[in-house]
Design a protein around this nucleic acid. Structure first.
Lengths: 203, 203
DNA sequence: TATAAGCAAGCAAGCGCTTGGTTAATTATT
DNA sequence: AATAATTAACCAAGCGCTTGCTTGCTTATA
């Protein structure tokens, strides 16, 4: 007896089912965690049967890796596009922060938080992802170095960058878009914590 | 045929198997995540058979809740013990930071990071844990308020505290005890990011 | 006719948890 | 003091379910 299916699948007219899978998987992995998300959840989210995602991806772990790489890639491009051509290091840092917060908290996949699921990857996949995140951090370190050279920052040693990322990334744990704090305000607040000395120093 | 067991279990002479279970569970939950940790893993870690932990705890989730509550409790006591009686707010903040980092990175359970597994709790358990973490944050907010009142901090609005916690908590992701950075140095670095203005202001 | 995309069905392994019994220590009773 | 009853702490076995993934087939497009 036919299970009541709707109309007919538009199938190939909706061409990029693979990317739909990626986005749905990313969303679910962030929301419930990798282990708590079943491949059936993912299939359901895009209207497939439980085994079908394995036509597009070799394994569940492969799906995680692809979702990470994909999300980080677009986040990286947004970061470059937003910060490119800004000469003033202080203004550029603000844009980096604002764009990173947007990567984290806007859109519907919170890609950077997928990194928290890295432990579910095997060693080689983890190394691939690590390479991408390293690249993501390069513009940050360069800007911090510039600010330190200009005396607007006491130090640009690695821990400073790592603490900065911590500040921003942790916001996923508490920030709510429907609260009273805007992302612009949060960006300013974070920037002030880093650069507050500049005002006093230059006075 | 008897599986080769060793000697005889000292049983009741080793009295606190429940706490052994708690500590082992906490360690495993932090290392592999709640979902990726099986109750068999936990039983193995303390030399029990797979069903025996359920004599001490009603469910796996119950184990998580107890491990969280237990770990946060001792962390909170350490925090109070270390900071109590320090009148100077700046010095007290440094002690809070240093002790929190120790809670996070020293010892073998990294309790505060268990909070990341809160999503595996049901609503009522999560509320219980939230109450404990709220209490944990009280001394911080009070100290930040003091510093703001003394002009050593631009603002002590809630986001400042949350960003500070982000800075510190995220260190679990990258700090390695065998690296070149000591926890004292890290504490100073974090404190400097918060209070750097004070030096310039007072100059 | 060939291929891309998916479904229907299900397998083997692993999961949280239960059940019924066993043993050593403790307490109560004679 | 000796014996019986009770309890705390586990083990051995396994149940029912879910999991990631596979296989063989169907359908729509090229």
């Amino acid at each position: 007896m036919a299970r009541g299916r709707k109309a007919r699948n538009t199938a190939l007219l909706e061409p990029n089912r693979r990317e739909e899978l990626l986005r749905a998987a990313a969303r679910l992995f962030v929301a419930k965690g990798f282990d708590a998300t079943t491949t059936r959840d993912i299939a359901d989210a895009v209207g497939m049967r439980s085994g079908s995602p394995f036509y597009h991806f070799r394994s569940k772990q492969d799906l995680l890796k692809a979702a990470m790489a994909d999300g980080l890639e677009t986040g990286y491009r947004r970061l470059l596009a937003a910060s490119d051509g800004i000469d003033d290091a202080e203004r550029r840092l603000r844009v980096l922060i604002r764009t990173h917060l947007s990567n984290l908290l806007e859109g519907d996949c919170q890609t950077p938080m997928l990194l928290y699921e890295s432990r579910s990857l095997d060693a080689t996949a983890r190394a691939e992802i690590a390479a991408i995140t390293d690249r993501y951090q390069k513009p940050w370190q360069a800007t911090l170095d510039e600010l330190a050279a200009a005396g607007k920052l006491k130090s640009s040693a690695p821990p400073v960058r790592l603490l900065l990322f911590g500040m921003l990334n942790w916001s996923v744990q508490w920030y709510r878009a429907d609260g009273s704090l805007s992302l612009d305000q949060l960006s300013d607040c974070a920037l002030a914590m880093l650069l507050a000395p500049s005002q006093a120093t230059q006075a």
